[in-house]
């Protein structure tokens, strides 16, 4: 062994002894390793919660609006897309991937495989949570505990309280021949003018729905704000999504 090398090793050993350097204990590394894995699992679960909230929001879509001439595509997507949860889902999936790469052997796996594994795990658990009925509960809890979420991601009621972009909803207070009085979710009174007769006749479903108007019924209206408390309606829809549109009842056809 060269003299130089020998003195170098001696120098290291003396430094270890002098500074009383000790190898870090095994449990420390094991704990860090477990922590990293827990973080991966948490990210997948958070992604799953975000996905549950996405399904909950999308399940609420009234596809009637999608091809309606009075509703632009932009307005339709404004109504339906749960932006906050989509962003949260992407963020947690990315963090899941990133932290997985920090596990002991995470670097060995291909980028796409890890991404797909994280995304599909979140989707799988998201669907499971949704089936367990966690979606609506979670949405309500988050909105009540964190007002900021309510602000960023308006719930259904808030989304329909946007007369300036043509969306209005509330309870019918009075039905008259050419208009109705609507009390919105902020207890504000609106005079809602019916669309013209020709327009109503062109949309038979709306025609039938209008004949069922009664006091106390919750409805959604798409149209235009005319005045501070006057709204020109183009489309009327019930507040609750009609069951038969989302889940066709095969028995009724027989």
């Amino acid at each position: 062994m060269p003299k130089e090398q020998n003195s170098f090793s001696q120098k290291i050993i003396s430094q270890i002894k002098k500074e009383n350097i000790k190898p870090h204990s095994k449990w420390k590394f094991t704990a860090i390793n477990y922590l990293v894995w827990f973080a991966v699992v948490f990210m997948v679960l958070f992604g799953a919660f975000a996905f549950t909230l996405i399904i909950t929001a999308l399940w609420d879509i009234d596809w009637y609006f999608y091809k309606h001439p009075a509703v632009s595509r932009i307005k339709f997507f404004l109504i339906i897309i749960p932006y906050l949860w989509v962003v949260a889902f992407i963020l947690f999936s990315f963090l899941g991937y990133y932290i997985f790469r920090k596990t002991q052997k995470g670097y060995r796996y291909n980028f796409f495989i890890v991404c797909l594994a994280v995304i599909f795990s979140s989707i799988f658990f998201g669907v499971v949570f949704y089936k367990m009925g966690l979606g609506a509960t979670l949405e309500q809890r988050l909105a009540s505990k964190m007002p900021i979420i309510k602000k960023i991601h308006p719930n259904r009621e808030q989304r329909w309280m946007n007369p300036q972009i043509g969306l209005l909803a509330g309870r019918i207070e009075l039905v008259s021949k050419d208009h109705l009085i609507l009390i919105d979710f902020n207890s504000k009174e609106w005079k809602v003018l019916y669309p013209d007769k020709v327009y109503i006749n062109k949309h038979p479903r709306m025609k039938v729905f209008i004949t069922h108007f009664r006091e106390g019924l919750l409805i959604r209206v798409i149209g235009e704000k005319v005045d501070d408390s006057v709204f020109q309606a183009k489309i009327f829809r019930p507040w609750s999504k009609p069951q038969r549109e989302s889940q066709p009842n095969s028995r009724s056809r027989n």
């Binding site: 170098f8 290291i12 270890i16 350097i21 190898p23 870090h24 590394f29």
Partner: peptide, 12 residues
């Protein structure tokens, strides 16, 4: 030198 100290500390 730093490498060997690190190796020693992280042996476990």
């Amino acid at each position: 030198q730093e490498v060997f100290i690190k190796v020693y500390k992280n042996l476990n």
